[in-house]
């Protein structure tokens, strides 16, 4: 079910208002500021991934959007409604997967899913959804006896069984094995194709790279960057990376390369040639580095030209000492 990524047509109702609009949202717990003027938009037919370290405010955002907490200030529009005032109306049009689960422990898995489905007028077929997510395999087992991954699949099923327009998924892939994760990702892609707006929080860069139409990087309750994965990762300089024995003398290589690049051993045996201005890492630079390796009698392993990975971008945006301040 690979979805063609054609800019401009991926959201056929692009003229429509965003499914979720958050502007300047503030939430404090006593002296702790969880959300500090957060801005975010999630559109129909798109997956919006919220990335950021623990404590950045991702869960608080989901709780405010689902009416479980009241924001102190700021603008919050969920499907055009206010989650605190119009919670009743929103509850049938949104789906929620909470990080702490919230599944009743004493009940069999399928009974929980049927209970949630029965709250909705036109739910998905429970058996088909259970089969797709592999819930039928443990449908009679009490929730408290389920593994973390099984619980997570059940929680996801409960979040989407009511056929929501907007799904809030707080770390949906936590605890999933690779097979279950592939099934979940496939379902999320199908939901997106069906026009659902999906807001998910995650620590998995692979998940964001695979699914997200838009990424919002959150740090200390504020959105510090947003855009597509490509937009976020294309801002950095090109880098030529390769692996070779540690501590090679780099002076000869530096002399052979133009001054528009800089060469470093970033970790023992990891070498990087970084462009100082756009386009500086060109085919000639690659050839020069390769022949220098040949002259050294060294085989460069994993020689690639690229930009920064999403993980590097997120670490750079969210790292730094102030993350630990007060």
């Amino acid at each position: 079910m690979a979805r063609p990524r054609l800019p401009g047509v991926q959201n056929p109702r692009g003229e429509e208002a965003a499914a979720l609009e958050v502007r300047g949202l503030v939430k404090r717990y006593g002296r702790l500021t969880a959300l500090d003027g957060l801005d975010l938009v999630a559109r129909r037919g798109e997956v919006t991934a919220v990335l950021g370290p623990n404590g950045a405010g991702k869960t608080t955002l989901v709780e405010c959007c689902t009416g479980l907490r009241r924001a102190d200030s700021g603008h919050l529009s969920v499907l055009g409604l206010d989650p605190r005032r119009d919670g009743r109306a929103l509850s049938s049009r949104t789906g929620v997967l909470l990080q702490d689960g919230g599944l009743p422990g004493g009940a069999p898995a399928l009974a929980v899913l049927r209970l949630v489905a029965a709250q909705h007028a036109r739910p998905m077929d429970v058996d088909a959804l259970a089969a797709l997510l592999g819930i039928d395999g443990f449908g009679r087992t009490s929730v408290r006896r389920l593994s973390g991954g099984q619980r997570q699949r059940l929680a996801l099923a409960c979040a989407v069984v009511g056929r929501p327009e907007l799904a809030f998924l707080d770390e949906p892939s936590t605890g999933l094995d690779p097979h279950a994760r592939a099934v979940v990702w496939d379902l999320l892609e199908q939901l997106r194709a069906a026009g659902v707006a999906v807001l998910l929080t995650t620590h998995s860069m692979a998940e964001a790279e695979r699914l997200a139409d838009a990424v919002v990087v959150v740090r200390e309750g504020r959105a510090v960057a947003s855009g597509t994965v490509t937009q976020l990762t294309s801002s950095g300089p090109e880098v030529l990376r390769f692996g070779a024995p540690a501590h090679l003398p780099l002076d000869g290589l530096r002399a052979a390369l133009p001054t528009t690049v800089t060469t470093d051993e970033t970790a023992p045996g990891r070498y990087e040639v970084t462009a100082l201005r756009p386009g500086a890492v060109d085919p000639q630079v690659v050839a020069t580095a390769a022949s220098w390796c040949a002259a050294q009698g060294v085989l460069p392993e994993g020689l690639v030209v690229g930009r920064r990975s999403l993980e590097e971008v997120v670490l750079e945006l969210t790292g730094g000492p102030s993350q630990w301040a007060a």
């Binding site: 049938s92 049927r114 077929d125 659902v196």
Partner: peptide
Amino acid sequence: VLELAPAGGAAPAAQRVAAQSRF
């Protein structure tokens, strides 16, 4: 067939409460 397209709407109140009671 798994219908994924959004189709919000709550079940009637009596059905919601009855489902919860049965559960």
